[in-house]
Nucleic acid binder design. Sequence first.
DNA 1: CCACGTGTCTTGCCCGAAAT
DNA 2: ATTTCGGGCAAGACACGTGG
Length: 202
Amino acid sequence: MTAVFSHGRLRLYLLKLLDDGPKHGYELIRLLEERFLGLYAPSAGTIYPRLQRLETEGLVTHTAAGGRKVYDITDGGRAELRQRAGELATLESDISASVEDLAALAGEIQTEVRGSVRDLKRELREAARQTRREPPPVRTAGPAVRPAAGESPLLAEFDQRLAAFTVEVGALVRAGRLTDVQLRTAIRVLDGALDGLRRLLR
DNA sequence: CCACGTGTCTTGCCCGAAAT
DNA sequence: ATTTCGGGCAAGACACGTGG
């Protein structure tokens, strides 16, 4: 997996966040998640070792408050921030760019999913029209299947389920709960399912 | 001497699981 | 919710050998 932050940049960004005010570890995780619009959130196993390291280097200090460690930047930490101000500015613009890229990718996938669902609905409507034009062949045995009058309730159910699924996927994408690999896999599975349905409807 | 390639070591990002 | 632990992985740093 490619690291979101390259060498030494996470610690720089943590110093920047702490320069805005004292924060505990979990709060820093949430702030990073917000900064990346929910598309990336470092795990606790990433943040706490970094904070410990910064503390042993004297760049941050902590005070225990209510069962949690509240970290604050030291003068040494501020000195490093000043020293690396240029690098921090580059980092900020890099983060903005990558957030835009990730958001665009999520949007594309959402559009793609919506498009596939729209195609399926159109094909289902077309299939329903065909069914109404061409009554089913007379069966020689078994009960006769009577076509539903007007809009088929089954079609409505299809419609409802597909719409619900679109909403579900959209929510997961916005919450950053789906990885790129998962989304691409989902799209492939959806394409396969659509192909299967098309064959069934022919 | 210098440029280049290669191998090894170090550093840092990152995660999941488990404990508190 | 918060912290710790153990480990994988990639990039950077460095030393060393080789050929021109």
